[in-house]
Amino acid sequence: MAKSPKGMVGKTVESLGDYLKEQRVSAQLSLRQLAEQAGVSNPYLSQIERGLRKPSADVLQQIAKALRISAEQLYVRAGILSLEDGAGGSVELAVLADAGLTERQKQSLLKVYASFLELNAAEGDSHEPTDGPDSGTDS
């Protein structure tokens, strides 16, 4: 019954898995070969392709490198990046590319950033800062 409790996340992961499998097949790599080149286990990669697991940004980057495709494409497919909004892509990519952050820190920053974007979108046309332009300065 609880086939996909995560709803849209399951759909995103499934399309990611399908996309990865298409890329792997077109690169003429076996599952085992790609897993070895990406530095992940064969069963884990199989689970990603079947939509059972959602890989981290770091794992996606390793897979993209092994497939010789853009990591950004995989981030979009995995739902980590949303380029349709036209906002933020470069910030998200910078966070994901920062080797000084742990995976958990990267995900936390991306969640906070996304929540700010949602908040701003919900406020609509009000683009004025809530604090005055001189807030924090004593002139």
Score class of each variant (00 low, 15 high):
Ser30Lys: 12
Ala122His: 05
Gly79Met: 04
Gly7His: 09
Pro129Phe: 07
Gly100Ser: 15
Leu101Trp: 11
Asp134Val: 05
Gly100Asn: 15
Gly17Met: 07
Gln47His: 13
Val76Gln: 13
Leu96Gly: 04
Ala71Lys: 03
Ser15Phe: 07
Met1Thr: 06
Val91Met: 05
Ala38Leu: 10
Asn120Val: 01
Gly132Pro: 07
Leu60Thr: 01
Leu101Gly: 09
Leu34Thr: 01
Ala2Gln: 08
Glu22Leu: 11
Ala2Trp: 00
Ala94His: 08
Glu118Val: 08
Gly10Arg: 09
Glu84Phe: 06
Gln23Gly: 01
Ala27Lys: 13
Ile69Asp: 00
Leu52Ile: 05
Val95His: 06
Gly7Ala: 12
Ser139Thr: 05
Glu128Ala: 13
Leu67Arg: 01
Phe116Lys: 02
Leu67Met: 04
Leu109Cys: 07
Arg53Ala: 11
Glu123Gln: 11
Gln47Thr: 01
Leu34Asp: 00
Ile69Gln: 02
Glu84Leu: 13
Arg53Glu: 04
Arg32Asp: 13
Phe116Leu: 13
Met1Val: 03
Ala94Leu: 07
Thr12Gln: 13
Val91Asp: 02
Ser82Cys: 12
Asn120Thr: 06
Leu60Asp: 00
Ile48Glu: 02
Asp85Arg: 14
Ala64Pro: 02
Asp138Cys: 03
Glu22Ala: 09
Glu123Thr: 06
Glu123Gly: 05
Val91Tyr: 09
Gly89Thr: 10
Tyr19Gly: 04
Ala97Glu: 15
Gly17Ile: 02
Pro129Asp: 11
Pro129Ser: 13
His127Ile: 04
Gln33Ser: 14
Ser41Trp: 06
Ala97Tyr: 03
Gly51Arg: 11
Gly10Gln: 10
Asp98Leu: 02
Glu103Thr: 15
Ala35Arg: 10
Val59Asn: 03
Pro5Met: 04
Gly132Leu: 12
Asp85Met: 11
Thr130Asp: 15
Gly79His: 04
Ser41His: 08
Arg24Ser: 02
Phe116Cys: 08
Gln33Met: 14
Gly136Ser: 06
Glu22Tyr: 06
Ser108Glu: 15
Tyr19Ile: 05
Lys11Cys: 00
Gln23Met: 14
Leu83Cys: 04
Ser4Val: 05
Gln61Phe: 07
Asp85Asn: 10
Leu74Glu: 01
Leu45Asp: 00
Thr137Arg: 14
Ala38Gln: 06
Leu20Asp: 00
Val25Gly: 00
Gln107Glu: 15
Arg50Lys: 13
Gly124Lys: 10
Thr12Asp: 01
Gln33Trp: 03
Val112Trp: 06
Arg50Ala: 06
Gly17Asn: 05
Ser90Ala: 09
Glu84Ala: 15
Gln107Gly: 03
Ala99Asn: 13
Ile48Asp: 01
Ile63Thr: 06
Lys65Phe: 08
Leu83Arg: 12
Asp85Phe: 05
Leu109Arg: 11
Ser126Tyr: 08
Ile63Pro: 00
Leu109Val: 10
Arg68His: 14
Ser4Tyr: 09
Ala87Met: 05
Lys65Gln: 14
Arg53Asn: 14
Gly17Lys: 04
Leu34His: 01
Ser108Gly: 12
Asn42Gln: 15
Glu84Gly: 11
Arg77Trp: 02
Leu45Trp: 06
Gln73Asn: 13
Asp98His: 10
Gly51Val: 02
Thr12Pro: 00
Ala71Trp: 02
Ala2Ser: 11
Asp138Glu: 12
His127Asp: 09
Arg32His: 08
Ala121Glu: 10
Gly124Cys: 05
Leu110Asn: 02
Thr12Arg: 09
Gly86Arg: 07
Leu117His: 02
